[in-house]
Simulated assay, not measured.
Amino acid sequence: MDTQSKIYVAGSRGLVGSALVRALSRQGYENLVLPSSQALDLRNQAAVDEFFAQEKPDYVFLAAAKVGGIQANNTYRAEFLYDNLMIEANIIHSAYRHGVTKLLFLGSSCIYPKLCPQPMQEDYLLTGFLEPTNEPYAIAKIAGLKLCENYCRQYGVSFISAMPTNLYGINDNFNLANSHVLPALMRKFHAAKVNDDPTVTVWGTGTPLREFLYVDDLADALIFLMNTYNRVEFVNVGTGQEVSIKELALTIKAVVGYEGELVFDTTKPDGTPRKLLDVSRLTAAGWQAKTSLKQGIEQTYSWFVQNYDTIRA
């Protein structure tokens, strides 16, 4: 990409999309196309095709998706499958039809089997059963990366895919009903601190292991991949480091400054017992994460407090 290339960021209002816009702007990319979901329904094939015909973007970051945590994934199963299939299929096909130079599709580490060997290598895809609570979302993301792979093979286009680990950061979703674990815990601890509550309840046993990537690091990685990566095979994006949910909760507790006690609700699901990406393919390409978990949580909490009245909560 050069600084005058027309770049379409699909999902520019979301966690990843807004981080991409910040990163692209910082790096001097000025010609950004950023329609809102109200202006362009990505589930509508005709509307998406018309948009591509009119705008003719050179590069596409496909960061638009219907997303959520365990509860949302398990409750809105049909929506998570249908909406994500439609969004990715419409954008990928229109990008092909209208001659986009390069497209980057953003997947998720939930594409891997529930009991996948750790750390999870790209070659482990489709080697076992998925985690049942987020199977529809995972299937949609697998379909997206396979669309990119096979459009490359059949049509000779440059459509690449990146599979990030668990994300968090500025502009995250802090709604307790459908957010991911880190922002949900941050909001819980903040509310408990403000209300002087004696305890905070954490779902599950606290023993599952997770990897977390600060979203601004992901944005940096995606721009790096768009500029340098051209293989048909998708690539994992993460830190290569993991932490237990209990350790995560204690870190957030310390950053927020909450002084009460943790209570683990073992009647709630843990989800996948362990999720750590093998990031050797990305490391070999020349990129690695820069922000430590504590630094990322501190930056996220600072933003959370400053923007509390307008956060997605």
Rank of each mutant, 00 (worst) to 15 (best):
251 T>N: 03
231 R>S: 10
197 D>A: 14
52 F>W: 08
22 R>V: 00
264 F>S: 07
133 T>P: 00
139 I>S: 01
247 E>S: 15
295 Q>I: 00
120 M>W: 00
198 P>Y: 04
129 F>K: 15
254 A>Q: 11
40 L>W: 10
142 I>K: 10
249 A>H: 02
64 A>K: 09
51 F>W: 07
53 A>S: 12
17 G>D: 08
181 V>P: 01
110 C>F: 04
49 D>H: 08
119 P>T: 05
135 E>P: 00
30 E>V: 13
64 A>T: 05
136 P>S: 13
124 Y>V: 07
212 F>I: 04
100 V>P: 07
97 R>L: 15
284 A>T: 12
126 L>G: 04
206 G>E: 07
239 T>Q: 03
141 K>E: 05
226 M>A: 06
55 E>Y: 07
198 P>W: 02
207 T>I: 02
312 R>M: 02
272 T>Q: 12
86 M>G: 01
89 A>N: 13
220 D>M: 04
6 K>W: 11
88 E>C: 13
20 L>I: 12
253 K>C: 10
88 E>Q: 15
149 E>Y: 12
270 D>Q: 10
18 S>I: 06
84 N>L: 04
159 F>R: 07
33 V>A: 03
240 G>I: 09
73 N>L: 04
156 G>W: 03
48 V>S: 03
197 D>R: 10
109 S>L: 11
300 T>C: 07
270 D>I: 03
63 A>I: 06
191 A>M: 06
105 F>P: 00
68 G>F: 01
123 D>W: 00
214 Y>W: 13
143 A>C: 13
193 K>F: 09
285 A>K: 10
147 L>E: 06
257 G>C: 08
15 L>F: 04
214 Y>I: 10
259 E>I: 11
104 L>A: 10
231 R>E: 15
186 M>F: 02
270 D>L: 05
71 Q>G: 08
191 A>Y: 05
168 Y>M: 09
149 E>P: 00
228 T>S: 13
227 N>M: 12
80 F>P: 07
12 S>I: 03
162 A>C: 06
197 D>L: 14
248 L>I: 12
146 K>Q: 14
51 F>E: 02
155 Y>R: 12
212 F>W: 15
120 M>N: 04
262 L>K: 10
107 G>K: 01
256 V>E: 04
108 S>L: 06
212 F>K: 08
174 F>V: 03
274 R>Y: 09
197 D>Q: 15
74 N>G: 01
163 M>S: 12
165 T>L: 06
262 L>A: 08
261 E>H: 09
171 N>S: 05
247 E>H: 05
72 A>N: 12
46 A>L: 12
159 F>N: 03
31 N>T: 13
53 A>L: 09
258 Y>V: 03
279 V>Q: 05
151 Y>D: 05
104 L>G: 06
285 A>L: 15
